[in-house]
Design a protein around this nucleic acid. Structure first.
Length: 485
RNA sequence: GAUCCCAUCGUCUAGGCAGGUCAGGACACCGGGUUUUCAUCCCGGCAACACGGGUUCAAAUCCCGUUGGGAUCGCCA
């Protein structure tokens, strides 16, 4: 690549949550910017006054940051090409529109929405592509023509050929295009106008966006030409579809980044999965964000739409839950622990032991929290699995529990190695197998028949609780004898 | 309907641009092993070049068509 520094952007509209499709677009642009040592710009396309809110804006910024996609220029941090909200750039659009009007590349149009609708319906009825019929094109309407929009004067006879960064050469004939609206009657720019004005004004060099924008590209290229400007390099990425191959919607479940965070997914997992959906680097599956920056390339971007696959996301999440530093996982799991009504601290060494013990069997942070709950629950609130109790806290188990309790009580220090030492020593001497004792002990201290290794479990639970629950379990086992269960 | 894009296991994909390993990896699924339960981990299995033509000694790979899927056709973005 040349010396000219590249500039990429992500330009969401704050009319909703950060969607996973948008997140992937942001990720790819961010990756390319980082890969090429360029700048990543965040711009808010908030010209839809009806639906844009500051609340959504805050949420989008928060979620992008959560994913680790930090911007160099943006509405909150500023930069040399601001402002970074389209509603704050009205003067720029106005000036540009005047320029286009003056040069004859645009004209005023007073057609009513009703007339437009009629024209559209007529075209459709004839089986044609609905397009503006150019009614006002040559009327030479001036500024005082009343309520009007500004339309772009499409040349109409050539072909726009763009070399798409991911799809290769794409051609669209001008006759397919119509005189689209640049400035609405309320004076605000439309998307196609604002995006060109801003990408040009902000010196954007590369644009990676969804396939759904491919059809907008020729219009935008014409605008660049009318502005006598060089368009950026475009790359259109395939869309993310639902598991059924249909457009992804709420119907398919969670579609926003925030929803996945709330479901217990790590940002590392979402980034990893999003990257692999529509992009590949040989046979490799697992990447952290730094590795992605290192190996990312446009050539690796695929051409066909991908389907959202929860199972694969789960697997990736499970991988990062198991591999990230335990402190990180514990920190991210804390809100989920709290949501279970448990009380912390969730960031001390005990909490780390608990999270570390359960994380290899969790696919989400919700599961981490649920599985680690036995460590944080007061003894009297520990739930017992009925079937487990009936099967393992039986009279036969009483003497075993008694011995375990006795030996553990005598332990001078409470850590995995010493616990294991005490128990295996006894097992060895008595000829018993660990299998015979592990389950009764596990059920006594966790209430469940499944869980981490026994010694990790006891270590994480801590001496006092372990002994107290063993005591209680012993009572339950004897009780079983009393009732002949 | 018109235009544009796309097409390898159920899913994500490698391979395609520079045709020549009975198409490789991963998820899911099935089976087995390790193990202290459940997981992790390890081993094995199932499973695909949408179809039809062409070019060629040779096509998943290049070309055309068909079919299928998706996107777009707003004073939304």
């Amino acid at each position: 690549m040349a010396d000219a520094p590249v500039r990429l952007r992500f330009a969401p509209s704050p009319t909703g949550h950060l969607h996973i499709g948008g997140a992937r677009t942001a990720l790819f642009n961010w990756l390319l910017a980082r890969k090429l040592g360029g700048t990543f710009v965040l711009r808010l396309e908030d010209t839809d006054a009806e639906r844009s809110t500051r609340e959504f804006e805050r949420e989008i910024l928060r979620d992008l940051a959560w994913l680790g996609l930090i911007w160099d220029e943006g509405p909150d941090v500023g930069g040399p090409h601001g402002p970074y909200r389209q509603t704050e750039r009205a003067d720029l659009y106005r000036a540009l529109a005047e320029r286009l009007l003056a040069s004859g590349h645009a004209y005023r149009c007073t057609c009513s929405p009703q007339r437009l609708e009629a024209v559209r319906a007529e075209a459709l009825a004839r089986g044609e592509k609905p397009r503006y019929d150019g009614h006002c094109r040559d009327l030479g309407l001036g500024p005082s023509c009343g309520p009007h929009v500004v339309r772009f004067r499409m040349p109409g006879d050539g072909v726009v050929a763009v070399h798409d960064l991911v799809k290769g050469p794409v051609e669209i004939r001008d006759e397919e295009l119509d005189d689209f609206v640049l400035v609405r009657s309320d004076g605000l720019p439309t998307y196609n106008f604002a995006v060109v004005a801003d990408d040009h004004g902000m010196g954007i060099t590369h644009v990676l966006r969804g396939d759904d924008h491919l059809n907008n590209t020729p219009k935008q290229v014409h605008l660049y030409r009318a502005l006598d400007a060089e368009p950026p390099r475009f790359g259109h990425m395939p869309l993310i579809l639902g598991p059924d191959g249909k457009r992804l919607s709420k119907r398919h479940g969670a579609t926003s980044v925030g929803a996945y965070r709330d479901l217990g997914f790590l940002p590392e997992a979402l980034v990893n999965y999003l990257a692999r959906l529509g992009w590949a680097h040989g046979d490799l599956e697992l990447f952290d964000i730094d590795e992605l920056v290192r190996v990312f390339s446009i050539e690796g971007i695929g051409t066909s739409a991908g389907r959202w696959d929860m199972d694969k996301l789960m697997w990736v999440n499970q991988h990062w839950i198991a591999r990230l530093p335990v402190e990180r996982v514990a920190r991210d799991a804390a809100p989920f622990l709290a949501a279970l009504g448990l009380t912390g601290p969730f960031d001390d060494s005990r909490a780390h032991l608990a999270v570390d013990a359960v994380r290899s069997r969790a696919r989400t942070l919700v599961q981490v929290a649920t599985m680690a709950a036995f460590c944080f629950l007061p003894d009297e609130r520990l739930p017992y699995d009925d079937a487990a109790v009936r099967k393992f806290l039986v009279p036969d188990a009483a003497p075993l529990l008694e011995t375990v309790l006795e030996r553990l009580k005598r332990l001078p220090s409470w850590e995995r190695a010493s616990i294991e030492g005490a128990i295996s020593e006894w097992l060895q001497a008595s000829g018993l197998g660990l299998g015979a004792v592990a389950q009764p002990v596990r059920v006594a201290v966790t209430g469940s028949r499944v869980g981490p290794g026994l010694f990790e479990t006891l270590e994480a639970l801590g001496r006092d609780r372990s002994l107290a629950r063993l005591e209680r379990g012993l009572g339950m086992a004897r009780d079983g004898a009393l009732h002949g269960v």
